[in-house]
């Protein structure tokens, strides 16, 4: 049972490939290991496969027919393709590009959505605790504690995105996957989310896809650079920004393309 041995890494990618059409790889044999309580940024020009890789970790590709994923992804040593997909998705919370609170649910309903969707019944006290804990962890509690029963869509964009993070955190995931979470937000909301990511690192492991290089430099410990589906370079953020090993990485970081 080699693949259940805990290696100290929370996530291991082994030869992970994703293809939309046979023979063409959007993600091409990616190998990487991610340590707990770190922030890993995935960078690269659009279409390089970074979002695709992130979706693969959450097994979201299974929604769309014709996409095939090969290789192994070990979450805490366990191959996610042998796990129940719903369990995988509970363990790996996901935050999307645009804030997408469920429009028919209230703020507290949104936080509890994961429980409701998994048919986990909670009593009133448990609900209250989860809502408060999750909203506090994204620094939204003080702003919304009086309007918990209002629709989540009435909040500002930045608040909505923090609500979506709270929604993912409510299920106590091991891993938080963020797909360009600030690309639709203004600079102030963006900086609040960035601060939040640094705080959340204490309890969670975070993988964030970002277009924004300075954002990656500000918040990430490690960085991946992807190009045409391949993982070109993976190392500490500091090293990648100061002396990148690969010419392409350097070109991208200095703005020569991308």
């Amino acid at each position: 049972m080699e693949n259940t041995i805990n290696t100290g890494y929370i996530l291991e990618l082994k030869e992970v490939s994703v293809s939309y059409t046979p023979g063409k790889y959007a993600v091409d044999k990616v190998n990487a290991r991610i340590a707990p309580n770190t922030v890993t940024a995935i960078m690269g020009p659009s279409g390089c496969g970074k979002s695709t890789l992130l979706h693969a970790i959450n097994r979201l590709h299974e929604l769309y027919p014709g996409i095939s994923t090969t290789g192994e992804i070990l979450l805490k040593g366990e191959n996610i393709f042998r796990m129940n997909p719903m369990k995988v998705r509970r363990l790996a919370g996901m935050v999307f590009q645009r804030p997408n609170p469920f429009p028919t649910m209230s703020i507290s309903g949104n936080v509890l959505a994961g429980y409701k969707l998994n048919n986990i019944s909670l009593n009133k006290k448990e609900k209250g605790l989860i809502v408060e804990r999750s909203l506090r962890s994204v620094n939204l509690w003080d702003e919304v504690k009086d309007v918990l029963n209002k629709k989540g869509t009435f909040l500002s964009g930045g608040q909505q995105q923090r609500l979506c993070i709270a929604r993912a955190l409510a299920l106590k995931p091991e891993l938080l996957l963020m797909d360009e979470p600030t690309s639709a937000l203004d600079p102030i909301s963006t900086s609040r989310i960035e601060d939040l990511i640094l705080e959340l690192k204490k309890e969670y492991t975070i993988i964030i896809v970002t277009h924004n290089m300075s954002q990656a430099a500000r918040i990430s410990d490690n960085a991946m650079f992807m190009y045409l589906g391949k993982l070109v370079e993976y190392g500490t953020t500091r090293q990648m920004f100061t002396k990148p090993e690969n010419k392409r990485t350097e070109d991208y970081l200095t703005g020569s393309f991308g």
Binding site: L63, R89, R90, F96, R98, N100, F102, L117
Partner: peptide, 20 residues
């Protein structure tokens, strides 16, 4: 992304269709 968010929270297909 609404459907993806529902599934990303571990919801089953039927739960996402019927509840979201």
């Amino acid at each position: 992304s609404l459907k993806e968010a529902g599934l990303a929270l571990g919801g089953s297909y039927s739960a996402v269709v019927l509840r979201i």
